[in-house]
Amino acid sequence: MNGSTETGGTPATDQAPPTDQAPPTEHQILAEIAGLLAVVLDEYGLDEGEVTMDARFAEDLGLESIDLVTLAGHLQERWGERINFAEWLAGMELDEIIGLTVGRLVAHVADRLQTAGRS
C-alpha cells in the first residue's frame, strides 16, 4: 500500500480539507480514525501521537473486543455501508484480530472508498 498521496497534488496534512470529489488519502483516513478512536477510548484517554499506522488496536492502544464493536459503529456512521468492519474482521483468525494494526484498517478503508468511488 502506498502510504503517501496518490492524487498527485500537494502532500496531505492534517489541515487538508476533505474533498467530495477524490477519495481521501491514507493520511486523511488515519487522522479521521484517530479521531474516532479518541471517542471510543474516551474514558481511558489516548496519548497524543499514539495512533500511528503501526499501532496495534489491542496491544498498543488498549482496545478490548467490545471497543472494536463500538469502533465498527463509528466507521459505519462515517463512511456508510461501504465499510463493513464486522464482516472484514469475521474473515480473520482471533490472533490476527488481536494483532490488527491501525495501518491495516486505514488501507482497508482506503481500498473500499476507492472501489466505491469507481463504481
Binding site: E64, L68, V69, A72, A86, A90, I97
Partner: peptide, 16 residues
C-alpha cells in the same frame, strides 16, 4: 465476555 464474542464470529455469517 460481551456481545463482541459473537459480533466478530458467528453474527456476520448468520446475517449473510
Amino acid at each position: 465476555d460481551s456481545l463482541a464474542s459473537y459480533y466478530f464470529t458467528l453474527a456476520p455469517a448468520l446475517a449473510a
